[in-house]
Amino acid sequence: MPADIAPGDVSQAKQSPDSAEPVVVFEDVSITFDIKPVLDNISFRVQHGETRIILGPAGGGKSVLMKLANGLIRPDSGTIRVFGEDIARMRETDLFKLRARIGMVFQESALFDSLSVEDNVAYRLHEDRVPEEEAHNRVVEALQFVELANTIEKFPSELSGGMRRRVSIARAIIAKPDLILYDSPTGGLDPITSTTIIDLVIKQRDVSHTTSLVITHRLQDAFLLATHRFNQQTGKIEPIPNNGIDDSTKFLVLNEGHVVFDGNTHELVHTDDPWLKEYLS
């Protein structure tokens, strides 16, 4: 059962997406499950328009960090600010309003298996009482973005793992969120399908410049994100010319609940940290 009885504090003004203040701020965040510390004094910031790739070995606390960023779980100590609001101390009812600005893609897609693809993607629109015709048009648009317009009447059980992940992305972006959280969008997928998913993440980044957090286990996915861009003229993903890297893409590497690295692609590639060098090799 979600714990939502913490005292509320929503008096702070809502932050505009264009504000200079970071979209996500973690300050000394720690969380322990049973007796095992999962995250220990984690601090980092994600600026507006930034794509933050979260890397690290399995069991390093990446998914927990993602759930903390959306208020799905609460830290034992520390402060988490999203759009300027302290979500660690917000009531669940206030978090529901804040989450309207956040899209999330879950590790196993987490589509509602009793609803069709259309109803899954339109879930948030139906909650907001958007007229049926407008909701349908927006669902078609979102499904076209993930190149799955032909699956609109199907059910999640009829789709492959990669297709489910793409529907999940469509569900996350349909309300045009200001922050997107991708929890291992390529986890458990074959390399070709993984590349298709990362292409969609790049396309979303370069078309709408939405701030995002992306967890991945695959280094090649991370470097694909850093070195490629979406060409709006050709509608294709292509390498950034002259071996360039995307300035808005930054990295956070976690290991055993600690931040091992926080910086840009260039700094990551030229790191002196022996553990990180071995991890990247």
Binding site: L72, L95, F106, D113
Partner: peptide, 19 residues
Amino acid sequence: SMRVTEQIDAMRALGTDPV
């Protein structure tokens, strides 16, 4: 089943109170 397949968390993430 919804709980173990993260559908409850997805519902919360989509701004709906599962209760």
